[in-house]
Design a protein around this nucleic acid. Structure first.
Lengths: 251, 251
DNA sequence: GGCAAAGTTTCCGCTGAGTGGGAGGATCGG
DNA sequence: CCGATCCTCCCACTCAGCGGAAACTTTGCC
């Protein structure tokens, strides 16, 4: 994990975040050894610091494994991560869910990835890999394609230069993706067919801030099949996106 | 704010959390001076540490105010705060919302307070003060009364000893509250009428883990008026709570 | 404009908090 | 029983962090 933080010169604060940053969606619990390893800290240091963090609520111990502490959850909920957007969007997401019973996503672009801001998923839905706070590639998801179509040129170039394959259907040819992004502009929505996850298709539309039309986010649906009813889904998305955009204040 | 952390002996990690802990729902942005004050740190120290945290993503600067950083949001979402419960409950919360269009709450008891784990609120709803990750008194909310009715004796005693008044209708007499808690047991649900927030009423039921019947959480609805349709709301809540309880694994 | 007050940033020398190698335990499996 | 693996603790050295104080910026008032 990143440069060796055990070298003198690294602040304690950075070590705190190194420890916390050792956790991710695939590693929600870690043994001390794994924690030290992933944080790039000597065992003794990790042990002492981890103990301290447990006392502060930044970590929790469950048996001999560590997990991120409740205190961090508390604090994180205070972070203004698109707070207004999420607030405004919430009822529209419910409406979409009620109308479609598909998994509903609200996402923004974070660099060259999609960042999922909110998600509603029902009982009977295709398994979806997204997660609020999670990031996925821009070229493999519906919301990602929408955001990519409206991203600055340098982002597009970076993404096109490295189209990783996720499923057999993932689009890895820059030319094909470029063509699809043009269609996103022309038709106003993006779609994917099993490009991120087998058995999952998606459609997505941009959310434009009412005042200036800037694309601030994307709204998407994940369904098992798009061959029937796509038009209805897109229409529902567009209604919701327009409603959200209208309700957003000018920054 | 707590003991003076500027005295030597306090670890850097504790100062980091002191700074982050200076933020709360009412203070989501702070000037440097306010931050230092609320964290109990000397100005120079707060300034340096805050700068460091900005570099690490733990804080963000907006103009000359600080807010909690995205990194903390990211990390917090990895904290296993009733992860299974929230996951299992999500679709039931949607159902409840679809059926009632009321604000839906999922909450657990954290010491002598209610901790809101999830919340769905629609467009047209009474203004509600709850917030995911937020805490409220046990005796002024529907979910709180449910949780209090099933809390250990020492918690009950502590709460009864200090029934703070929030609105003119808040129950502040231990006797009356005791009587209501008995009714919660007898009738299987709790209610409030403008006891937390003027114009807001609520009903709530316990969520019992299927395996052992232990009350692990409470499920509640907030509506403008309970005089009509209360029975329907309670019935809907009970169906949902039973469904959630059945889906919970034995810990 | 001039001045005071409040808030923010920088400087710098002293010092004890933090560090981490290593020893010592605990636990497991063969 | 022994070795492997992981966790905990110790302690002497040292440099990262500390914070008082001074400089600087912004704001608001006369």
């Amino acid at each position: 994990m990143a440069g060796n933080l055990s070298t003198p010169g690294a602040s304690v604060a950075s070590r705190v975040f190194a420890l916390l940053g050792a956790f991710d969606a695939e590693h929600r619990t870690l043994s001390l050894t794994a924690l030290a390893e992933r944080a790039g800290l000597p065992l003794a240091t990790a042990h002492r610091l981890a103990g301290e963090l447990v006392g502060l609520g930044g970590l929790e111990r469950r048996g001999d494994r560590y997990v991120v502490g409740r205190r961090v959850w508390d604090l994180g909920l205070l972070a203004p991560v698109q707070a207004e957007l999420r607030q405004v969007a919430a009822p529209f997401l419910h409406d979409l869910y009620a109308a479609t019973h598909a998994t509903v996503h609200l996402a923004e672009r974070a660099g060259t990835e999609v960042l999922y801001l909110d998600r509603l998923s029902g009982r009977t839905t295709v398994p979806v890999v997204s997660r609020v706070g999670g990031r996925l590639p821009l070229h493999t998801t519906g919301v990602g394609k929408v955001l990519l179509a409206h991203a600055p040129d340098d982002v597009l170039r970076t993404v096109l230069a490295d189209l990783s394959r996720v499923t057999p259907y993932t689009i890895t040819q820059p030319g094909r993706l470029r063509e699809q992004l043009r269609r996103v502009h022309r038709e106003g929505f993006a779609q994917t067919v099993e490009e991120m996850s087998p058995g999952a298709c998606s459609v997505a539309v941009p959310v434009r801030r009412g005042a200036d039309g800037e694309v601030v986010a994307a709204l998407g649906l994940v369904v098992p099949d798009l061959r029937r009813g796509r038009a209805r889904l897109v229409a529902a998305l567009q209604v919701a996106a327009a409603g959200i955009g209208r309700s957003l204040s000018t920054e």
